[in-house]
């Protein structure tokens, strides 16, 4: 085997394999990018949603929560929280943090304005409408 399968042959298989995989991946990516608009409904990306995502990021929400299953596993999934709780609950919840209940996990107070709360809700609403192939399995996330 070692006479046939030499180091230079192994190297050539490596180059061939990587080039092939990379091209296939790029082709699939190209197709995905063309299909995504129908799945993420980007026509609904309003200025509110964009500001909401900015708030989501600059408050490091993903440091405790998951969104579409990605992030930290310390606090509930928020990809579908708009459907689970609705806009009013979300705003009220954010306003009363931290609960200060001894021994319970705490969420910081972010001192959002009404406008900012609406932005966050808009972002979570838009996110909940992405076609995720029916993930999560149920409303609890």
């Amino acid at each position: 085997m070692s006479a046939f399968f030499t180091k230079s042959r192994a190297r050539n298989i490596f180059y061939g394999g990587v080039v092939f995989s990379a091209l296939l991946f790029l082709a699939l990516t190209f197709h995905t990018i063309r299909k995504m608009p129908q799945r993420d409904h980007r026509e609904n990306l309003t200025a509110e949603v964009v500001r909401g995502k900015h708030l989501w990021e600059t408050r490091n929400c993903v440091g405790c929560h998951t969104i579409l299953g990605e992030g930290a596993y310390f606090a509930p999934e928020l990809g579908n929280v708009y459907k689970r709780r609705g806009p009013d609950f979300i705003k009220a919840w954010i306003k009363v943090q931290p609960t200060g209940v001894a021994g319970r996990r705490q969420m910081p107070q972010f001192h959002f304005s009404e406008q900012q709360l609406d932005d966050i809700v808009a972002f979570l609403k838009w996110t909940s409408e992405i076609n995720t192939e029916n993930w999560p399995p149920n409303i609890e996330g």
Partner: peptide, 15 residues
Amino acid sequence: IIGTGHHYYWIGAPA
């Protein structure tokens, strides 16, 4: 490389 796809199941990418 193609295995990256196991992160694309539920984030809005095609099935």
